[in-house]
Amino acid sequence: MSVNSIWNDLVGASVGYRGTEFKTRVIEAGEGEPLILMHGNGGHAEAYSRNIMRLSRHFHVIAIDLLWHGFSSGRPFTTEMVPTYAEQVVDLMDSIGADTAHLEGESLGGWVSMWTALHHPDRVGRIILNTTAGAVVEEGHVTPEQLAAGDSLRERSLAAIGDPTRETVRKRLEWLMAEPDRVTEELVTLRQFFYRRPETRDSLVNVMRNSFRSDSPHRITPQMLGRIRQPTLVLWSDHNPGTGPQFGRKLASLIPDAQYSCIADAGHWPQWEKPEEHDSLVTDFLRA
């Protein structure tokens, strides 16, 4: 009987560190064009554990811990989070000798992908916005659903980081899934490990307190979306909390060279919940 396991899924990948200015923890595999995978708020590289090896058949896949998450380090906390994450991505590319890379970001990672594409356009190939956070599709308007989802995630996140019991960590992870039983015991244990690590915990408290501001100066506005020139796949799900398929379609319509796909029966982590479908869509898009 096959067993779904992060360990089994990552057999053949390597775990290490890249970067010069930043010490970025990476899980990587494969050869060819670089594809950098970025997790969401409070996450870590293993958010893509079910995708790395399959995608590595075609690309040099690098899943990372964003700064102040996991084991990545390199700069004291700053409220200039999103621009700093973009600097981290460019530093990683420099360290592997890559002029350009494709970017996929889930939630916060999608926000970083958009910011990097806008502010370092010559370094970015194609981008995949996987249930991305950080964008508004109507000028100056964050929807009530977005605010409610952000409040719920912040509350669960701070509870899990402040007291990382199996119950609080599981509740935080269940927010990500269309069905709560998709949160494995192994995933709870791994996330609990990171939240109990003093350096990570202290950093994440600052991250969570500053990530859900409706007045963030780094929000991606409709005008900014219109300046994204990279071919873009807006990859959504039918049960994404706070921003459903209608939001995803509107987002795609504001990016000049974008296409839209929606994965059924998935929440905020379609790459985990429906990995084969996710990987097929991403591979077809990047190889088009």
Results as ranks from 00 to 15, higher is better:
137 V>N: 12
99 D>F: 08
123 R>P: 12
126 R>S: 09
120 H>C: 12
138 E>W: 07
116 T>G: 10
131 T>K: 13
96 I>D: 11
108 L>S: 13
117 A>W: 04
115 W>S: 11
105 G>M: 02
109 G>A: 03
123 R>V: 03
134 G>H: 03
105 G>L: 01
104 E>V: 08
98 A>M: 01
102 H>G: 05
126 R>P: 11
136 V>D: 04
120 H>D: 06
106 E>R: 15
96 I>A: 13
116 T>N: 04
99 D>V: 08
95 S>V: 03
134 G>A: 03
109 G>L: 00
128 I>Q: 09
109 G>Y: 00
127 I>T: 09
111 W>P: 10
124 V>N: 06
95 S>H: 03
138 E>T: 12
138 E>L: 09
112 V>H: 14
108 L>P: 14
98 A>P: 07
114 M>I: 02
110 G>N: 05
132 T>P: 13
122 D>Y: 11
106 E>P: 12
114 M>D: 02
108 L>D: 09
100 T>M: 06
112 V>I: 08
132 T>M: 07
113 S>Y: 04
106 E>Q: 15
111 W>G: 02
115 W>K: 12
128 I>P: 11
106 E>I: 06
105 G>H: 02
99 D>W: 02
116 T>L: 02
125 G>M: 00
127 I>L: 13
134 G>P: 10
132 T>G: 05
132 T>S: 14
135 A>T: 06
114 M>N: 07
113 S>K: 09
113 S>M: 05
115 W>G: 07
111 W>I: 07
114 M>Y: 12
95 S>A: 09
97 G>V: 11
121 P>H: 08
112 V>A: 15
133 A>M: 13
106 E>F: 15
126 R>W: 06
101 A>Q: 01
137 V>C: 14
98 A>E: 01
110 G>M: 03
117 A>D: 00
136 V>G: 10
115 W>P: 05
98 A>H: 01
117 A>E: 01
101 A>V: 00
105 G>F: 01
114 M>C: 11
101 A>Y: 00
100 T>C: 12
117 A>V: 01
122 D>S: 15
127 I>K: 14
131 T>N: 14
133 A>Q: 13
113 S>I: 00
102 H>L: 00
116 T>Y: 03
96 I>T: 09
95 S>R: 08
120 H>M: 11
117 A>H: 02
132 T>N: 07
118 L>F: 06
127 I>Y: 13
108 L>R: 15
107 S>P: 11
125 G>T: 00
132 T>H: 04
127 I>E: 12
97 G>H: 06
129 L>C: 08
103 L>Y: 02
110 G>P: 06
130 N>T: 03
95 S>K: 07
135 A>Y: 02
122 D>N: 13
123 R>G: 13
125 G>D: 02
136 V>S: 13
126 R>T: 00
106 E>W: 15
99 D>I: 02
114 M>G: 10
96 I>R: 08
128 I>R: 12
138 E>H: 14
101 A>G: 12
